[in-house]
Design a protein around this nucleic acid. Sequence first.
RNA 1: GGUAGGGUAUCCAAGUGGCUAAAGGAUGCGGACUGUAAAUCCGCCCGCUUCGUGCGUUCGUCGGUUCGAAUCCGACCCCUACCA
Length: 389
Amino acid sequence: MELFANTEIVIGKDELAEKVAKGEKLRVKFGVDPTRPDLTFGHMVVFNKLKQFQDAGHEAILLIGDYTARIGDPSGRSELRPELTENEVNQNASTYLEQAFRILDKSKTTVRRNSEWFSKMSFADSLNLTRKMTVARMLERDDFKNRFDSNQPISMVEFMYPLIQGYDSVILNSDIEIGGSDQLFNMLVGRTLQKDMGMNPQGVLTMPLLVGLDGTRKMSKSYDNYIAFNDSAKNIFGKTMSVSDEAMSEFYRLLLNLTDLELGELKNQHPMDVKKKLAFELTAKFFDEVTAQKELDEFSSVFSKGRLPEDMPSFSVTKLNLEKSSVLNILAATDLFQSKGEIRRLILQGAVKLNGTRVEDPECIMTPNDASSDQIIKAGKKIFIRITE
RNA sequence: GGUAGGGUAUCCAAGUGGCUAAAGGAUGCGGACUGUAAAUCCGCCCGCUUCGUGCGUUCGUCGGUUCGAAUCCGACCCCUACCA
């Protein structure tokens, strides 16, 4: 079935298929913890799947783990997450929603927050919940096992996390929960808890994890190897172009829902063209085709042909009002660099060009061009600056 | 509570008195090449800098020994294992 395409593991597939065949409307749960302000393309993999269910007429339930965010999900973690304040969590939660609706259909999405029920729960109730899980089962879990084996700390509160997430499923009475493959354990706990309460246990569907821009680790905010929903068109395009050739097909498959057949066809084309197409599609998804085409042209022009970008920050020498208008001082005054030391290093490494000629001496004085055109400084691959009178 | 091991830069991880701003990875940045902000190769990578054999800060924290400490001593904080 189409709904199970590109998935990794589906548990309870037969029951789900049966319900769907009977025309039942499934309650599909997906939970996100608002721990940071940005959603990444890693999340998009699951959002896409949720959207697919939504389009097929099922109920998409987006659970904002505003309560859980304060605890920290141990999934894929090697250490305890820092605690967040209620305020931070709330702010993140609202930007999450805004971002999520770039994929999901807002009018058809049910949004719930788990603070609705957890903030009212008593300690005795929580303790009762812990009764449902054994230490041995917790330690079966990879994240915990690895940390335990390598003598890393695991806090009690992290042990609670899967139960909390599972309890959400009880409250929401979900028919299926979807998430990244690192969520398998947590989602299974939901299934167990529902069963325990005499409910119909939810199906569990995991999506593969998207690899990050470094090409090795999973895409994650903590590794800073991500593309964010909120990135500019330029960055979505550019960052996508920095994905390695190997990882590219996963991006197509998981972010644009391509089938194996379609992927096979792409293999015959030039990798760079394929990647440009990918970057174009993703940019268009978040903006529009016109913007995407603009970024594509710009990229080809700037990086393939070495031309100047259309927009670049502009600085006036007279306004900067420097004692000595050397390249070093001018660049330092733009605030685009961390320090003069960094600028010197860049110049030393041959990264800085003035009007296309490599700058060798940091102290080289910039003389105003005889009235004619502005001067352009390029520093590294991505920084272009226009200098005017 | 007892015993043993551990806390090093963004991350992982060497280093047991001076030659240590501290090996080696990874990430990141830059250059070359090109097919892209891919791949590969090379370089840089604590911060600042008037670029000077310059200044400042670091090896859990605080104090001590010493001409000199990440390295030795003391106290404290934190992590882990085993025993209870």
